[in-house]
Nucleic acid binder design. Sequence first.
DNA 1: ACAGCTTTGTGAAAGCGTGCACAAGCGTCA
DNA 2: TGACGCTTGTGCACGCTTTCACAAAGCTGT
Lengths: 234, 234
Amino acid sequence: MAGQRTRRRIPEATVARLPVYLQLLSDQFDAEVTNISSEQLAALGGVNAAKVRKDLSYLGSYGTRGVGYDVEFLIFQIKRELGLTHDWHVVIVGAGNLGQALSGYGGFGERGFPVGGIVDVSPDKIGRAIGGVRVRHVDELAQIVQSRDISIGVIATPGPSAQEAADSLVAAGITSILNFAPAIITAPHGISVRKVDLAVELQILSYHEQRRVNARTATTLKAVPGQRGRGASA
Amino acid sequence: MAGQRTRRRIPEATVARLPVYLQLLSDQFDAEVTNISSEQLAALGGVNAAKVRKDLSYLGSYGTRGVGYDVEFLIFQIKRELGLTHDWHVVIVGAGNLGQALSGYGGFGERGFPVGGIVDVSPDKIGRAIGGVRVRHVDELAQIVQSRDISIGVIATPGPSAQEAADSLVAAGITSILNFAPAIITAPHGISVRKVDLAVELQILSYHEQRRVNARTATTLKAVPGQRGRGASA
DNA sequence: ACAGCTTTGTGAAAGCGTGCACAAGCGTCA
DNA sequence: TGACGCTTGTGCACGCTTTCACAAAGCTGT
């Protein structure tokens, strides 16, 4: 029965891992592997096997004890659960460096998210074609969204314009937003928002590098005495 | 590696939020706000005020009760903790679509992570200049890394080449890797690895869209909207 | 049919992260 | 100087996530 899909709620942490399993399984499928155990899949993904099994168990009991999982069938089930049985067109707001980079990079279309439109406000960007898609004015957003039944918007504007872009997307009828701009945006309840900030990722790495350096100098100096309180090292 | 440093360890979840606070505080500083309360900062970031205070408390006791935090001082402390008191050059492996997009996008340099080099294996890419940096052969990686004292590498190759790229980076002396390729890579213990997969983010959004659609068709039977978005409220 | 080996699916425990609630501390003003 | 109002810093409880451990279940060979 088809109506069973909404009954179980999949934890957010699991949802975030399903695409990874899908990726790994697709690689295996291409390598003509037809069956895989949770242990093998865990090794490929660098995670714990029990976690893999628990994650997959949210989809249903699709494994065979003593054998493992059928690769092709599991791929199908994950795709179904993630809603990847059809393409989702996306619309990109912002045709600057980042927007051009994102739409020029073919990765979206290849993975089931073709670019259905790009909009900007700047007259000297409108009309240009990027990655085969013509840049249109942001006022046409609602029309673009409706004509292609688009529900996912990508924000690739500069930080200060991000909230405005989000408001436009919501007004146009978008229900999910992927925000690449370095700014926090707010959206009405019921709209899914995710943020990817390339600089933030680098800053997190920087923190670990920083600690590495600190640890190294601290080891050289051996135990630094005193320094009571905090914020001593400058 | 020597025994675990007992210097205060900041939880990973907090480390991931510090760059966000930094961003917000910088905006406030530009707007000439000199003092801010945890409540205000929380509102800007769409998070809980207690979380903000707890996060900031890992840096030290830099707030003033009854008053709040000094914006400029807090910016400095976060930067210090994240190791952002100086620029970190990065080297990009892969000069294809994604690599070109990343280095052409000025966002890295602006935020303290200038591109110190780009390498590829393809002869027809080597020698070309992208975003002011000349593409060199991957064999020159170690030399590039050492001459500029680079410790962060960015992988922008196709998925199948990602592990090879990672191995090259590690061999060249890199200690942190940001992986944009759609593949899981493994690195020796002690190397920090982070993965950003644009398609994965979209797939997570797709899951929520999928549920929305299912929920809508199911509302004919049940009147439970059960909406769960991410991100902030106003 | 059964013994032995493999692997799943899942309770239960342990580990983290989040948010509440409040005492402690600081500034202000009479 | 003392009382009052505001905000930080943090103990504690709760909920989500991860990991362990093992019974249930399937396959193979005798």
